[in-house]
Design a protein around this nucleic acid. Structure first.
Lengths: 110, 110
DNA sequence: CATAAGTTCGTTTATAGCGAAGAAATGAAG
DNA sequence: CTTCATTTCTTCGCTATAAACGAACTTATG
């Protein structure tokens, strides 16, 4: 068990995207947004898999929406960050910020 | 194939550690340093595996050292960043920095 | 019942992680 | 001088978790 391990890039982006989408944070738009901000295709499968991981780690929580009033049918599963999820974003940020110090400019390569 | 995918935390730390160690960037001290800066044990096996991956992706290059004048015997395999490796660090940084904007403080959780 | 919106499932590949085994040189014991 | 235990370092084999993909399934609507 990883015990503490900082967030990977993908999971991090998912958390941030959930925040950004707010009320519209469910699978389909999440994977659409992720594709956009990544600049490449992101399959729905990989998004749901990551969402499941994040939920089982307690960083997000989900709840099923009520019957949709729209054309397509299936119930939406909405996601939101838990307090722990938000904390882990901040932790990850501070860890990475530390890493950047000591980073030389592109010239310093022998 | 990932085609562009930004660096994960572990690989990123390896690249930065190679930079920092300079002339002493080979397997054993790398894994020692990584353990320190991570604050937890890092097995040599996982370090070498990541080094192999990074090399095959062209982000680092390795060369075998000459006969060691010291006690222990086996030849060292030295690593250095390629130009591409250095570039990918900078890219990763700028991508992540963008992500941080729009990050709310811990209070803004419904 | 065709169609649309959503999610779940099965599978495959890549990353991480670990310790034991292997390789190569040194220096000490006999 | 020759064996050999010791040191330093790397390779190997294996297991677990993360990432990725698209087809299949579910549920509602017109």
């Amino acid at each position: 068990m990883a015990e503490h391990s900082y967030l990977g890039e993908f999971e991090l982006m998912i958390l941030l995207t959930i925040l950004r989408l707010g009320d519209e944070a469910y699978g389909v738009p999440l994977s659409r947004e992720l594709s956009l901000s990544r600049g490449r295709r992101v399959s729905v499968g990989s998004v749901y898999a990551a969402l499941d991981r994040l939920e089982s780690k307690g960083l997000i929580a989900s709840s099923l929406g009520d019957a949709t009033p729209e054309r397509g049918g299936r119930a939406k599963r909405y996601f939101r960050l838990t307090e722990q999820g938000l904390r882990s974003i901040h932790e990850t940020r501070s860890v990475l910020n530390k890493l950047w110090k000591s980073l030389p400019t592109p010239e310093e390569l022998a």
